[in-house]
Design a protein around this nucleic acid. Structure first.
Lengths: 222, 222
DNA sequence: CAAGTATTCAATAAAATAATTGAATACTAG
DNA sequence: CTAGTATTCAATTATTTTATTGAATACTTG
């Protein structure tokens, strides 16, 4: 094979794969599937898209070998093909954070109103976790918590937080986390906590990042 | 700002950046700029594109903050904005290698004909480099070699190899490397060397990968 | 300032991408 | 087998992306 043809084919194959990620909806889907598998319906609901549109975007991701499916009765469950997909997403996300000043501005605007601007990076949480005074709060739905969470974290899904907030000790410090930097559960939790006089911050990243970094996690078997 | 609007904006910003990479020509440009800055003319020549088309693709990359420019007289030099761009490219490339079976087939077909299929991974080269019997051959143009190369490597640009091959000792083993897995210099070098009875392999990756991994490099000041 | 070179710009046409709609499939439950 | 549900498919339209072409800019050199 001629040199030029080889190069054209190689770069085209990769570009096709990257193109599959180069869409806001599909990025959101990849991000979501980083938490574990989901049905088409669940994805559509989470990402605020029509079912048909969601399905079509999922086909694109499947074509590119980024996701795979499992049928269970009427439902079709989608999941990432490999952890590296999640890893690559995280890498691209970080690249965006470092390159795009608009991204920084967007996040600052959003978090300022929720008192969650001052976020804790993962390594800092790790060192401060030894303290008895720190409570790590997983504010994702129970299903995701059971599927894997930061070791030692307690699960209070955001929707249940308002009800349980009065039982929480005021003399502790709280660090809330959820799916990742674009997941707003942790921000809403911090907003609520600080409003009620608790000392709370959010984790900068999310659970998939923690896990991918090889930091201590635990799982609850169902 | 409302939750959904925030998410839409965040994923859109990232998708726009990724879209800038999601094109075969632009990937080739990013890959090439991983070696160091280049003028528009040089890029067009290397990637086999028209000047105007190259310029337009470069505008897209610039818009996404992936490359930046420096003017010097009539020439405009483009370079990657940060090392993380190169790092991300490498990550995506690896993702492609692991996900796309077609990619494996393409590379196998190309390298089989050049006796360069059996490639050496970086860590293996590192351990074997201590041996006095191994020669590490940088077959890129001298300019790129001077800009940085694997410590201890000798530079014989591919176009000069045929002329110098008779002065090379036959009792050594050779490992050739160049810009990366899609750069064909190393493959051509291995083809030539094995044809003349030398024992030669190519490095699986390229110099930017070696450098990014923090392995020993050296530079020649000009 | 005139001529020459490197690069960008603007306009065009062809091709690919994306959202919407309604119909078609592939299952389960009764 | 029928009705119901989750998902996919196909057709349509609007939008975006891409390559090509020739003209316009921004420099350098003499």
């Amino acid at each position: 094979m001629e040199k030029r043809i080889f190069k054209d084919k190689a770069y085209s194959l990769l570009a096709a794969m990257i193109k599959a990620m180069a869409n806001p909806h599909r990025l959101e889907i990849v991000d979501l599937l980083g938490q574990g598998e989901r049905t088409v319906e669940e994805i559509a609901e989470e990402a605020n898209m029509s079912i048909a549109n969601t399905s079509q975007h999922l086909q694109v991701l499947k074509q590119a070998n980024l996701v795979e499916v499992r049928r269970e009765g009427n439902y079709i469950h989608y999941r990432l093909t490999h952890e590296e997909v999640s890893k690559s997403w995280q890498m691209l996300r970080e690249l965006g954070f470092s390159q795009l000043s608009e991204m920084e501005r967007l996040i600052r605007d959003f978090r300022e109103k929720r008192n969650s601007l001052e976020a804790l990076p993962m390594d800092e949480l790790l060192t401060r976790m030894r303290s008895r005074n720190l409570v790590v709060l997983d504010v994702r739905p129970a299903k995701e918590f059971n599927n894997g969470h930061i070791r030692g974290a307690i699960n209070i899904p955001l929707e249940g937080l308002a009800a349980k907030i009065n039982h929480l000790p005021k003399n502790k410090e709280y660090v809330a986390y959820c799916r990742g930097p674009f997941c707003v559960f942790a921000d809403e939790a911090v907003a609520l906590l600080t409003k009620r006089g608790f000392k709370a911050k959010r984790l900068m990243e999310g659970f998939p990042d923690w896990k991918m970094k090889g930091l201590p996690v635990e799982t609850i078997e169902s």
